[in-house]
Write a protein that binds this DNA or RNA. Structure first.
Length: 439
RNA sequence: GUGGCUGUAGCUCAGUUGGUUAGAGCGCCAGAUUGUGGUUCUGGAAGUCGGGGGUUCAAGUCCCCUCAGCCACCCCA
């Protein structure tokens, strides 16, 4: 016998896990669509040359790569942004600009696993391509904010920054050519503290202590967003790019405030840098305040030239990616996942062995109103059927023996309270809807 | 990829300094005089002690390898 098992970092999803997963996907889809983002899909497998070298040496190492039986050098996508770049380069003429798309799909990374980190996981990306307008940076922020509200979070923080202020500052300090190294160190600020970040910068770039002090002084600016912004503006004064970044940040923050995003949910955080090199403007990371240890659950940013490797056409854009599986791990730990193992709300008991046709008709009637119903497949004892309904997490049971059917009725049993009422068959959908509205 | 910790029934774990037929709780299945679950009672199924090799008269218990999980580094969703 072959031992049934799954690969490291790859998982099966049982109904209890898959139901909230699908619900989350539905929510993301609904929010994205409401802003006019259109769905696309791309292949899981691409020519390796398409994917290689786009996310840095680290992502190259993490790529699942092999030769197919035709001898082609192929690799599995490790994010949705690089395939998007190829996609727009290939189809720009048909798409028209600006182009807004969302893409919910699985990606693969052969890195070491950890809590909330898998080798196969799903991302829910949305991007606006073909415009440099700050309006799109603002909209991106609003979408992320609305997305988390729609999922059911209230305690979260969108951290926002702008690469231009960082690179502007580094230019000004004469560290411009070491930007990547400095940003990588800065990214760890929250985790290891300013002193160690300073040490790392010195070690990797040979910066002077004056340079390090300036960087750290900047990165540890604190206070309200406005106060930090003033500090940022002062620090980058005189550097055109830095000033531009500060102005962009100011525009995003003020627009979001005007749009009703509470101040405590949008936090200017000049230390976040994002690992990926292609970001050039606004940067986003989203943290759950009750579970910040799990890391960012939705990240993104603006890039000047997404598809430069595939086309001469310059395609700027901005977007973000919801880390569905990491978020689900977090929600599970926070006890936010219901444990129902059925997607249907109601169970019709197969009570009287002779009345299957009536049960099927009842189920069809309820389904027609948009409520999910399952008919128990065997005429077992009622107690057993109710036990099944209870364990699976059905909200209501529909019980009709020959007595009820003779009267054209059915018992609608509330499995949460245990009470039941006799209802005319035609009114059953409405009765269930009332119970569902209660929660 | 590197380092540390862990791995006993579906789940959470107990298993004395290596020594008779490996246990518990929860869950699961079936019953408790033929139409009502979540409580209770009774009974039942279920473990090659992650896998492989070694040391020993004897290994769940010691050693090595391997696989998987967790943590740190790295990176990131």
């Amino acid at each position: 016998m072959i031992e049934p098992r799954t690969l490291k970092g790859f998982r099966d999803f049982l109904p209890a896990a898959m139901i909230p997963r699908e619900r989350l996907i539905d929510t993301a889809r609904r929010v994205y669509r409401s802003y006019g983002f259109a769905p696309i899909d791309t292949p899981a497998l691409e020519y390796t040359e398409i994917l290689l070298g786009k996310g840095g040496a680290e992502t190259d190492k993490q790529m699942f790569r092999f030769h197919d039986s035709g001898g082609r050098d192929v690799a599995m996508r490790f994010d949705l942004t690089v395939p998007l770049a190829r996609f727009v380069a290939q189809h720009a003429a048909e798409l028209g600009m600006p182009f807004k798309r969302y893409h919910i799909a699985t990606v693969w990374r052969g890195e070491n696993t950890q809590r909330g980190r898998y080798r196969e996981f799903m991302q829910c990306d949305f991007d606006t391509i073909g415009t440099r307008s700050i309006a799109s940076d603002i909209e991106t922020t609003l979408v992320v904010h609305e997305l988390f509200l729609a999922i059911g979070f209230t305690d979260f923080e969108i951290h926002i920054n702008n690469r231009k202020v960082l690179t502007g500052l580094l230019d000004k300090l004469g560290l411009g050519d070491k930007a990547t190294l400095v940003l990588r160190a800065l990214d760890k600020l929250a985790k290891i503290g300013a002193a160690k970040v300073g040490e790392e910068i010195v070690a990797t770039t040979g910066a002077t202590s004056a340079q390090v002090d300036a960087v750290l002084g900047f990165a540890t600016l604190a206070g309200t967003n406005d106060a930090i912004l003033d500090g940022v503006a002062k620090a980058v004064a005189g550097n055109a790019r830095g000033e531009e970044g500060a102005a962009d940040l100011r525009a995003v923050l003020s627009a979001c405030a005007a749009a009703g995003v509470p101040a405590d949910r949008l936090k200017l955080d000049v230390a976040i840098a994002r690992g990926l090199d292609y970001y050039t403007g606004t940067i986003y990371e989203t943290f759950l305040t009750k579970l910040s240890s799990i890391g960012s659950v939705c990240s993104g940013g603006r890039y000047d030239n997404l598809a430069g490797l595939y086309t001469k056409q310059e395609l700027p854009g901005v977007g973000a990616s919801l880390g569905l599986d990491r978020l689900l791990t977090a929600m599970e730990e926070l006890g936010m996942l219901p444990k129902a193992a059925t997607p249907a709300e109601a169970l019709v008991a197969y009570f009287d062995a002779e009345r299957l046709h009536d049960y099927l008709a009842l189920a069809a009637l309820v389904r027609k109103s948009g409520i999910g119903v399952e008919v128990y497949p065997e005429p077992k004892k009622l107690g057993q059927q109710l036990k099944y309904a209870d364990h699976r997490g059905f909200r209501v049971a529909l019980i009709a023996g020959s007595n009820e059917l003779a009267a054209g009725q059915c018992q609608v049993k509330d499995l949460k309270s245990g009470t039941s009422e006799a209802v005319a068959l035609a009114d059953v959908p409405a009765a269930i809807a009332r119970l569902l509205a209660e929660g």
